[in-house]
């Protein structure tokens, strides 16, 4: 039985998400699954920061532009990582609430495995509710794999022919 037919890796600009991408590339190689990568420009958080008056209007626009550039850069980087191992990645970027956009792509594309980087430590059940990765993990209809141990994953990725 193959691990999955369609794997989605969520990229958020953290080292942990790049590690998740390396692991997803190994999985896609092993199982010959189709691989997708998603970066979500978290416009919801930026709207909240504007409402809280932590962001100025022009700052929101500027950060949104930065995140668009981040999306392109990180998706291209993950694409290069995959190409080095002979795997192709379908790159996706979306805008909005992170967990909703992940859930939407999983459903739209019929993804059967979501791969994510190590989750942040949380302080309380309230944090758990607000953490976008936690929410995505709980809301998607497919299986979820949380990738840990950066060094082991790197070795596994490097060993991939």
């Amino acid at each position: 039985m193959s691990t999955a037919n369609k794997i989605l890796v969520y990229i958020d600009g953290t080292e942990q998400s790049v590690t998740a991408a390396q692991y997803a590339i190994c999985l896609a190689s092993d199982s010959r699954a189709e691989l997708l990568a998603l970066y979500v420009i978290n416009t919801r958080a930026m709207e909240d920061l504007l409402k809280a008056q932590i962001f100025l209007q022009n700052e929101q626009v500027e950060y949104e532009r930065d995140m668009e550039a981040d999306a392109e850069r990180y998706l291209n980087y993950v694409n290069e990582l995959a190409l080095k191992k002979g795997i192709s990645i379908s790159k996706h970027s979306a805008r909005g609430s992170v967990h909703k956009e992940i859930d939407k792509l999983v459903k739209d594309e019929g993804v059967d495995l979501l791969v994510m980087g190590e989750l942040s430590r949380i302080r309380s059940r309230r944090d758990e509710f607000y953490d976008e990765s936690e929410r995505a993990m709980r809301s998607v209809p497919c299986s979820v794999l949380i990738v840990k141990d950066e060094d082991a994953v790197y070795d596994r990725y490097e060993a991939l022919v």
Binding site: D12, G13, T14, N42, A45, M46, D48, L49, A52, I54, F55, Y63, D66, M67, A69, D70, R73, Y130, E132
Partner: peptide, 19 residues
């Protein structure tokens, strides 16, 4: 750093929530 807007926005949002 200018090329890590995602984590920056996330951290600001967490502080806004704490506040």
């Amino acid at each position: 750093p200018p090329d890590k807007a995602g984590p920056h926005v996330q951290a600001l949002a967490e502080i806004a929530k704490l506040a």
